[in-house]
Amino acid sequence: MADIAQLNKLCSQVRRDIVRMVHAVNSGHPGGSLGCVEYFVALYGEIMNHNPKAFSMDGKGEDLFFLSNGHISPVFYSVLARTGYFPVDELKTFRKLNTRLQGHPTTHEHLPGVRVASGSLGQGMSVAIGAALTKKLNGDKSIVYSLHGDGELQEGQIWEAAMYAAANKVDNYIAAVDYNGRQIDGDVDNILTLGNLKAKFEAFGWETLEVANGNVLEDVIAGLKKAQTYLGKGKPVMVLLHTEMGCGVDYMTGTHKWHGKAPNDEQLQAALCQIEETEKDY
């Protein structure tokens, strides 16, 4: 197992990257990105068997990850860069003309680590299921992971996919929900409540578990390892990660207002004061 202290340091640096990236172009989505730092660091630093130095689209023999809520690209890009998929320095091109780091992730610019475009919500679970089916056809024992926003679950396609995965025993697949309770217009419960989400996925035939604090790295790792124990038993696996939007930057928490808004110069400094530079800033 990787050194938790080391991975926590990586979390800190990823948070700095996120706020600096969105500040630099005065656009992007810091809130959800900050809330999912521990999930991404757990996945790429500890959980997945993957090959950053020799990325291939087909990823045969590797675990695969699909980001369905593509707007949290800052955390995805930072973690990909800092785990070796592409130079960390490239983070400074985020959302700028001719960049491989488009506002929402895409394969179009051939950025290593990205296997499908996302951003228009609700599509990633279907894609992940397809990739999991191909792994089965290929006799590839690797695992497919995906992440979804909680607001994203309002999209109907998610439930088409959820129904399919259970009915067809897609049991080499672990999905996760960034269960932060917030979306652009406000609290999920006020926009269109998800009701009892755990019961919903269970009713759809999924093995479902919750991580009570999705911003504690050890808990996320433990949750994902627990999820792995359910694989191969005829059910897809869902991990509901209770996270805090904006986690790590005090003024970005407790509100939905930093879902898709960048900090100004002053706010950036206020954020960076709270986040230790553990690896070098890009």
């Binding site: 689209m57 087909d58 990823g59 045969k60 695969l64 699909f66 296997r115 499908v116 599509q123 990633g124 679970m125 279907s126 894609v127 992940a128 299921i129 397809g130 990739a131 999991a132 089916l133 191909t134 792994k135 056809l137 290929n138 590839d140 396609q157 996919a161 399919y164």
Partner: peptide, 11 residues
């Protein structure tokens, strides 16, 4: 969506 995913790995 599943069709898109199936291509990853060569189908």
């Amino acid at each position: 969506g599943i069709a898109a995913g199936l291509t990853i790995g060569g189908k």
